[in-house]
């Protein structure tokens, strides 16, 4: 016999109240990354070993800059959700667990903003 109320079962939220959205957004970012990562690998192969100016011209196109930002931000978000699950699975000491999770979130935010500002700087020709 379950002591959960019918409403609690139907809503399907556990004690943390946000389990589904973590799972869902991990999938949404995964699907977005399918075409984006193929585009990214193709682009890197085209730029590898090339001149600075070639790479700048390439990233200066609004189309490439948009896809690059989408790729980096989706990758950072997806990576952060994945690392969180790994930490939650293996690190059981509460304060270590919390410290690493915070570190991952802060590092992802830092990388996301660094990437965004860099791409904008190239696009705007600074």
């Amino acid at each position: 016999m379950s002591l959960r109320s019918p409403l609690s079962k139907a809503v399907g939220l556990g004690s943390a109240k946000h389990g589904f959205s973590h799972w869902w957004w991990q999938r949404v970012s995964a699907i977005a990354l399918i075409p984006l990562s193929i585009w990214f690998v193709f682009s890197v192969v085209c730029l590898v070993g090339g001149e600075y100016q070639t790479a700048v011209d390439w990233l200066s196109s609004p189309f490439n800059a948009t896809l690059m930002l989408l790729f980096v931000l989706a990758a950072l978000f997806h990576g952060q959700t994945g690392l969180q699950v790994v930490i939650e699975d293996y690190v059981h000491t509460k304060w270590v667990n919390l410290s690493i999770l915070l570190l991952i979130k802060f590092a992802s935010a830092l990388l996301a903003i660094l990437a965004t500002i860099s791409v904008f700087k190239v696009v705007l020709g600074g």
Partner: peptide, 16 residues
Amino acid sequence: LALGTPVLVLWLLALA
């Protein structure tokens, strides 16, 4: 791959 994301961001920083 997650450990590789800082290298990707370094590339963008270098471009900028």
